Computed example of a mutant assay.
Amino acid sequence: MAEMQTLARPYADAVFELAEAKGELDAWSTSLAALSAIVDNEDVAALMDNPGVGDTVLAEAVIGVGAEDLNEGARNLVRLLIENDRLRLAPSIAALFEQRKAEAESRVDVRVTSAVAFSDEQQAALAKSLEKRLSRTVRLSFEQDENVIGGAVIRAGDLVIDGSLRAQLERMRTTLAH
């Protein structure tokens, strides 16, 4: 995984700089998300693994599938990735691009995992609190996981705030054991 990120970073950085210079960040987000989904498709993976499929045929197939969603720059990126045998990097390129875009927009995507759903009021309060703490606009996504027991686990990039009941019990157990 780390190797994929390392290989994908120069492509993501180049695409980001191009998109930012042209004011096309949202268009590129759409194109890269589409390309990522195409590359993750089992049928396309079979084409990529088939040594009998040439670069031109593969490029035409990928571009054909994403015709509506791939801008001209993304089509050129597909050709470049295929030429360099790096098409499998598309999902990592898309993820790294989105990270750069979020930084440029002073936005952070936050995933909240809890045992129960949050009410609208709780979501708004949490967003406001996180925006204050992180000094950024927060975009929340929620998922439920009964293993959390109570409380919530909040992930914002590398920051993890584990306020779950399980984590609290583990901290108490550790404290009592020492």
Rank of each mutant, 00 (worst) to 15 (best):
A19N: 07
A19I: 03
A19R: 13
A19M: 09
E20V: 00
E20H: 14
A21Y: 02
K22C: 02
G23I: 06
G23C: 07
G23K: 15
G23R: 14
E24I: 00
E24R: 12
E24G: 12
D26T: 09
D26A: 12
A27G: 15
A27V: 02
S29I: 08
S29K: 14
T30R: 11
T30N: 09
L32Y: 07
A33C: 07
A33T: 15
A34N: 02
A34V: 09
L35G: 07
L35K: 06
S36Q: 07
S36E: 04
S36C: 08
A37F: 12
A37M: 10
V39I: 12
D40M: 06
D40I: 01
E42F: 14
E42T: 10
D43A: 04
D43P: 01
V44T: 13
V44C: 02
V44M: 10
V44A: 00
A45T: 10
A46W: 03
M48K: 14
M48A: 11
M48S: 13
M48G: 06
D49N: 13
P51S: 00
G52N: 14
V53L: 11
V53H: 14
G54D: 13
G54E: 13
D55C: 03
D55P: 03
T56C: 04
T56N: 15
A59M: 09
A59D: 14
A61Y: 06
A61K: 11
A61P: 11
A61S: 14
V62F: 13
I63G: 04
V65A: 08
G66R: 01
G66H: 02
A67N: 12
E68R: 15
D69H: 06
L70T: 09
L70V: 12
L70Q: 03
L70P: 03
N71W: 00
N71M: 04
N71R: 10
E72L: 03
E72I: 00
G73N: 09
G73W: 00
G73E: 10
A74N: 05
A74Q: 08
A74T: 06
R75G: 03
R75S: 05
N76Y: 08
N76G: 07
V78L: 10
V78R: 00
V78T: 06
R79Y: 07
L80P: 00
L80A: 04
I82R: 01
I82T: 07
N84M: 06
D85H: 13
L87D: 03
R88V: 01
L89T: 02
L89I: 03
L89Y: 07
L89D: 01
S92K: 04
S92Q: 09
I93P: 02
I93V: 10
A94T: 06
